[in-house]
């Protein structure tokens, strides 16, 4: 039965590693689940986010198939809630109740952006990639404020309905590094 079902599957799918859709980029309508920590796999809701950070690391999840799109690390997302007054105009327009989302993949060498720390060059906290110290300001479209990164992190539009978050469209901007290694 299993064998028949898997005819035509790729080697990796047969090995049971990556279900179909799990390496596709986030799509409109996708839900968001924690990608790390005690709540890994659980749905991210607006109530999970504290104003001022830190960000939640998340994967998109297909609501129909329940497939978590975690097979490509390029799908990891940073979700953060900030005071709308702190956001620049463009970022505020995209925010839902101060909540914004970005790709967690640094635009420099493609490392994960893991830290939420005080900037090397200012007083505010910023997203920081610890591989090469690039810093991004989520209040200003995740523009680069320090380090070798050549461009902002890709942004992911969100929708908020009854406290539940979902993806409202494709990534805006390029995901991933310029020079992989």
């Amino acid at each position: 039965m299993a064998t028949t079902a898997c005819l035509g599957c790729s080697t990796r799918a047969r090995a049971g590693e990556d279900p179909p859709g799990s390496d596709e980029r986030p799509q409109k309508g996708d839900l968001l689940v924690f990608s790390e920590g005690d709540q890994e796999g659980k749905l991210v809701t607006a109530a999970d986010l504290k104003v001022g950070g830190p960000p939640i690391h998340a994967w998109p999840k297909d609501p129909t198939t329940s497939v978590v799109r975690s097979a490509s690390r390029l799908n990891e997302i940073l979700i953060i809630k900030l005071d709308p007054a702190d956001l620049d105009e463009k970022t505020r327009a995209r925010a839902v109740d101060g909540i914004i989302a970005y790709s967690a993949i640094c635009s420099h060498a493609g490392c994960p952006v893991t830290a939420w720390v005080k900037s090397d060059v200012g007083d505010k906290e910023v997203f920081k990639c610890m591989c090469h110290n690039s810093e991004f300001d989520p209040r200003a479209g995740a523009q680069v404020v320090f380090g070798p990164a050549p461009r902002r992190l890709a942004a992911l539009p969100l929708a908020l309905a009854d406290g539940s978050l979902s993806v409202a469209g494709n990534f805006m901007g390029k995901v991933g590094g310029t020079q992989p290694g």
Binding site: S72, C106, G110, C131, G176, G181
Partner: peptide, 11 residues
């Protein structure tokens, strides 16, 4: 041709 999801602390 390096894969696009490769990241490197030591490129």
């Amino acid at each position: 041709q390096l894969p696009d999801d490769l990241f490197q602390l030591h490129p």
